[in-house]
Amino acid sequence: MNGSAIAASGLRKAYKDKTVLDGIDLDVRTGTIFALLGPNGAGKTTTVNVLTTLLAPDAGKVVVAGHDVSTEARAVRAAIGVTGQFASVDNLLTGEENLLMMADLLRLPRAEGRRIAGRLLDRFDLVEAAGKLAASYSGGMRRKLDLAMTLVGNPQIIFLDEPTTGLDPRSRRTMWQIIRELVADGTTIFLTTQYLEEADELAGRIAVLDRGRLVAEGTADELKRGVPGSHIRLRFADRHELDVAARVLHGSTRDDEELTLRVPGDGGVRSLRALLDRLDAQSVEVEELSVHTPDLDDVFLALTGHGNLNDQENPDDHENKEVGAR
């Protein structure tokens, strides 16, 4: 079953002399979640547009659901569903009318359209709001409705461009849950995100996009493994203890102000025990011990050499963000 749902090679796209995609290769297996992770302006939306037939690349080949995007756009469109970066629901229609409009455009019989709309409203907990204008919906409800509209056609492959940007933490979790359920049903999901946590949480495979290039690809663990930064942090009660510990633990870095010692290591049980035995032998008391594995933030820093994702976020995005659940 695990064939290739999306296969792209050598994708290039430039606007005038600005290169936006600089040779992208992707391979997404059927029935998995794939995350394209990158900061604002990395080229995520452009990639989605190319993969979904909306934009012709300058070079490269894309096969989606077994069909070439440039020559069999129609067959590709029949197999995919796309939820864009901005919720494109019709504000002056009710939630239900939005769904029925999709059913009409897909030329489904009336009764079937109603049945599907009813089921989706129920599934996304929008039954109560079904008869209200979408203009009155909260950000989270709009995203849900937007995704429900994409699902009316029962697509095999779903593209989600930043599905949770601007959502409060609770709505974000709901959206994650919905995405997990979709993939459990056998759907393939290609999502883009600026959030490391989101990619880590949802995706089987992650590709890191930076300025139009893929700088890494793999599972979250693979990405983390390739990055230095796994270490054990020890904190001591006083300067003397710190001095002794620093002397016996080779390769460690000390912080005199914090009275901490950073010891490289993977935090496995055996090496941890060995380390504590060495300290015991010198009768050094450890106040506090913590094991640090690199998170995707470290990965991003290591891969791109230019910092945390959020440093690059567009100021506009902060305005959109709703205040978290209280």
Binding site: T52, T53, L54, R74, R77, A78, I80, G81, V82, G84, Q85, F86, A87, S88, D90, M102, L105, L106, M149, G153
Partner: peptide
């Protein structure tokens, strides 16, 4: 600008 037209284009409308 809201992507409504893109949604229709992907649906082959």
């Amino acid at each position: 600008t809201t992507g409504f037209i893109n949604r229709l284009r992907v649906m082959d409308v």
